[in-house]
Write a protein that binds this DNA or RNA. Structure first.
Lengths: 124, 124
DNA sequence: CAGAATCCTACCCGATACTG
DNA sequence: CAGTATCGGGTAGGATTCTG
């Protein structure tokens, strides 16, 4: 026996929080960029490649991802400083899982009623 | 050939939005309750069973889930009114997918650094 | 270059009435 | 019973400015 099959309340809650954080507005885009780069990326490179994110929010997102163990942050103490970000193994694996779900949703998109949001049938 | 393997930008965005909405604070709990009931549930029953949700937010959540095609809302025009909610097939399938991801995260929880959030090593 | 600090806005959510 | 309406606090996120 390796793991317990019934999650405890606490495990459930923690996993829930991870899921909510990672599916928030920006983290997946950041992780995707890092995955596609397939190499460490500097802060400014990430900022360029994640369409529409602001510097502040990127910083926050990177910090959260680092805290969760999904990316690494490496500081090279030079002037000017160089900082590189890279997906961890866990981060890469999680991304694969989420992308799989993502693709499943894409495949069923026609079945979703109003993924973009709908106005109800009020004319005027 | 049944589906296109490369999602368009638009599909990607829509699926992203679905994923973000469904993993938001309450929808999964609501869907879980409906799934476990395995039968139509009245509004007040759902309100009772979803721990901690307010009536206003439950209404909003149900509306969003309905718009997305994940649940059905059936109104019986009586006095007092009776309204029943039930998972759609799509909703049930999506829930299965997400629960699977959820369980995967639970299994890897030890690898996550600080799922609950961490204070950095500042003593005072 | 890689951020920290600040200001500001928009939403989200919770609590509390009120109604068909 | 199943909502709607309203108010208020907290927070995520954007734009801008400053700094080691």
């Amino acid at each position: 026996m390796v793991t317990i099959q019934t999650p405890t309340e606490a495990e459930d809650r923690l996993a829930r929080e991870v899921l909510e954080r990672v599916t928030a507005k920006w983290p997946l885009s950041v992780m995707r960029v890092l995955a596609e780069a397939n190499a460490p990326l500097r802060f400014s490179r990430v900022l360029e490649r994640v369409q529409g994110i602001s510097q502040k929010v990127l910083t926050q997102t990177l910090r959260t991802l680092e805290r969760d163990g999904l990316i690494t942050r490496t500081l090279y103490p030079q002037v000017p400083p160089r900082v590189e970000y890279e997906l961890t193994t866990l981060g890469g694996e999680l991304l694969v899982q989420v992308l799989s779900l993502w693709r499943w949703i894409v495949g069923r998109l026609p079945d979703f009623a109003a993924p973009g949001g709908i106005e109800h049938g009020v004319v005027a």
